[in-house]
């Protein structure tokens, strides 16, 4: 079955000239929901999609807890729908990544590799990126045997043996996906039980291709040219052992993508952007939504809801502040 993903708008005749009412940084569920709301409010909106158009659902096999899809929905399909809906209501989507921001002047300045954009308001929704293990061998083999994207790389492990590190929803969902390719999937988890939602646990325990290594952490990724295994340490006995494997998939949580905002926005001690109930940040006119400001829930429906709040607050903000009049002829 072929599918066709689309994350693009018509090219602009004179890019980066006008001042946007709103620039959304990040094209995941939070950013695209903000764009849907902003578009319907007729706010001129640019969405800078970044490396993962559609956000994390784009690299998730299946989503079962997003309301409205009783049979579940493919992550890629959901991502495509978010993008299409944002585009339909007039947001302009561009495949670029933000490389710099200046929140100290108005309009705010947003830089990508190729261009500079200006906007009266921002919604920051750049989400989070997978946390790395930080063990020897990981960097050397990243993309060559160590992966954080099962949907991308599962194909290369047909009939092979892989290790999945982690015990949360992502580790188990993606581990289950990998059993379609790999002959054996060994889950290495630091605790003696999974953190994943019960329904995923039940499926994992019932899957004959899945094995579990409890109370264990990966200490090193081994191999010469290619990955040949991992060295694990048992946390209770302190013993180390070597597990043979051809690949390692790391799902040990996410880190907020806030490096660009250090010194410009208030962040909490873990690096999340601090927001209030109206998704306002420490800089007026700058709102944040989704996983980048959510240390607690990190769920699609929560990300989407904060995106909606941010856009509704943008609308109010633009109405309130005459330096950024809506519908002026600056286009």
């Amino acid at each position: 079955m072929l599918d066709f993903q689309l994350a693009l708008s018509q090219p602009e005749a004179h890019p980066s000239e006008g001042v946007y009412d709103l620039i959304v940084l990040g094209g995941g569920p939070a950013g695209l929901t903000a764009a849907i709301y902003a578009g319907r409010a007729r706010i001129q909106t640019l969405v800078i999609l970044g490396p993962l158009p559609g956000g994390q659902p784009a690299n998730t096999e299946e989503v079962e807890n997003f309301p409205g899809f009783p049979e579940g929905i493919g992550g890629a399909d959901l991502a495509r729908r978010f993008l299409a809906q944002a585009e339909r209501f007039g947001a302009r989507l561009i495949p670029a990544s933000v490389t710099g921001v200046d929140l100290s002047i108005r309009p705010f300045i947003i830089r990508t590799d190729g261009a500079t954009y200006r906007a009266h308001t921002l919604v920051i929704a750049m989400g989070a990126v997978p946390r790395r293990l930080g063990v020897p061998g990981e960097d050397r083999f990243f993309g060559r045997g160590v992966s954080t994207c099962a949907t991308c790389d599962g194909f290369f492990y047909r009939d092979k043996r892989v290790v999945v590190v982690g015990g949360g929803d992502s580790a188990i969902i993606e581990g289950l996906y990998l059993t379609r390719f790999a002959r054996e999937v060994i889950v290495v988890h630091r605790r003696d039980q999974l953190r994943a939602t019960r329904i995923y646990q039940e499926r994992a325990f019932a899957n004959p291709r899945m094995r579990f290594l409890w109370d264990s952490v990966v200490e090193e990724i081994l191999g010469e040219q290619t990955v040949t295994g991992v060295r694990v340490r048992h946390l209770k006995t302190g013993e180390t052992s070597i597990i043979e494997a051809d690949g390692v998939f790391v799902y040990i949580g996410m880190e907020p993508q806030t490096q660009l905002f250090v010194g410009q926005l208030e962040l909490d001690e873990h690096g999340y952007i601090i927001t209030d109930r109206r998704q306002r940040t420490s800089v007026p006119g700058v709102f944040a939504a989704g996983d980048i400001q959510d240390p607690f829930y990190r769920q699609l429906v929560v990300a989407a809801s904060t995106g909606a709040i941010a856009a509704m607050e943008v609308e109010k903000y633009l109405e309130l502040y005459p330096q950024s009049p809506q519908g002026s002829d600056r286009w």
Partner: peptide, 25 residues
């Protein structure tokens, strides 16, 4: 085949050669 996510690359390539000016820094 430029299907799946590569469909975006394909349409972007069409747009880009039509414009003929690279979008690079």
């Amino acid at each position: 085949i430029p299907a799946g996510y590569e469909f975006t690359s394909f349409l972007h390539a069409i747009q880009s050669v039509a414009v003929g000016k690279p979008d690079l820094s």
